[in-house]
């Protein structure tokens, strides 16, 4: 039987060569990638939300965790991340301007705007690294209990946080860190804290002006402060000293907070890094005149889409890690 029926319309609408979405193959695929990557990031952020809602009463307060600004001493929550956000939005703007100049075939303008975009991206990645380093190093130090809860210290008179060095007593119990070159080969200790548990406990008992703060958030949205008696009682649960944050322990509170912080900002930072690398490749292609010869700057537009996407993700990371 004759099943292949040809009609007139096949030649025009369905005959191929049409672009119903008015986007080239490369641009469509970039959008395809962006949508799937957006779903990946959503998965990460929602699982962060899951863990947070699960421990809603004990989750660390971001304003107390990220308080530092490079070259400045003191307590400035959010200022630095706000700066990072601005840098990333700014580099998005120079990217849009590069795309715009590309549409007008102005090669030199595209070069300079791409250059500015790369610089912005590099500043952002550098800031991210600094933020990580500060977070890993830690602020005040804390104790961890048998159940994995974190006990932090507060000065009773001022209500400010007390660092371990403020009250811990140095005891004659120096132990040398075991390194791989000594004793059994290829075995070494992890990091060693600057004070032992014993030194912190002795110092705490000798200083009546120090109180313990638990992870639990009270009705005022602040961490619960124990009385001196409760503090001494709670101190007996402590099993180790924690300084800074890593994937296993975290002086700021819930360990999951540090895990998600490293994972999500790390994954985003990796996107920014690869974005900078791709931008550099495109940058050199522009200088070499590749797109001038090709007759259009669509590659700049495509890499631009990726770059804006990275900015878009940061807007969400900023909200869910630093603001909410």
């Amino acid at each position: 039987m004759d099943t292949a029926v040809t009609t007139e319309s096949e030649g025009t609408t369905w005959g191929g060569g049409n672009q119903p979405l008015n986007a080239s193959y490369g641009k469509m695929m970039m959008w395809f990638f962006i949508v799937s990557d957006a779903l990946t990031f959503s998965g990460f952020l929602v699982s962060y939300g899951f863990s947070r809602f699960k421990f809603i009463e004990t989750w660390p307060i971001a304003d107390e965790v990220f308080t530092h600004v490079p070259f400045f001493h003191g307590n400035y929550p959010m200022i630095y991340v706000a700066f990072m956000t601005f840098i990333l939005i700014m580099s998005s703007v120079t990217m849009v301007l590069a795309v715009d100049a590309g549409h007008k075939m102005k090669k030199n303008k595209v070069i300079w705007y791409m250059f500015a975009t790369i610089i912005g991206g590099a500043i952002f990645v550098g800031s991210q690294a600094w933020e990580w380093a500060t977070f890993i190093k830690g602020d005040f130090g804390a104790l961890e209990t048998k159940g994995g809860r974190v006990l932090q210290f507060v000065k009773a008179d001022t209500g400010e946080r007390a660092a371990l060095a403020d009250f811990a007593t140095a005891l004659p119990e120096d132990r040398i860190k075991h390194e791989s070159k000594n004793g059994i080969w290829y075995q070494e200790e992890g990091y060693q804290t600057s004070f032992s548990l014993n030194e912190v406990i002795t110092g705490f008992k000798a200083n009546p002006g120090i109180l313990i703060r638990t992870e639990t958030i009270n009705e005022d949205g602040e961490k619960t402060l124990l009385t001196r008696e409760q503090s001494l009682d709670r101190l007996s649960d402590a099993v180790r000293v924690v300084e800074g944050a890593n994937l296993i322990r975290n002086e700021y509170g819930s360990r999951l907070f540090a895990d998600f912080f490293f994972f999500i900002t790390g994954f985003h930072g990796f996107h920014v890094f690869s974005g900078v690398v791709i931008n550099i490749i495109i940058f050199f292609n522009i200088i070499l005149g590749t797109y001038e010869r090709r007759g259009h700057y669509e590659m700049v537009e495509k890499v631009g889409l990726y770059w804006h996407f990275v900015d878009l993700v940061w807007v969400f990371v900023f909200t869910f890690f630093y603001l909410v």
Binding site: P20, N22, F309, D311, L312, F316
Partner: peptide, 21 residues
Amino acid sequence: TLVKAYYIAWDFMHLRDEKSA
């Protein structure tokens, strides 16, 4: 945040100028 996301997608990623489909 959603407002910011809207303007990044619509103006920076120029979704505003794309076909509605």
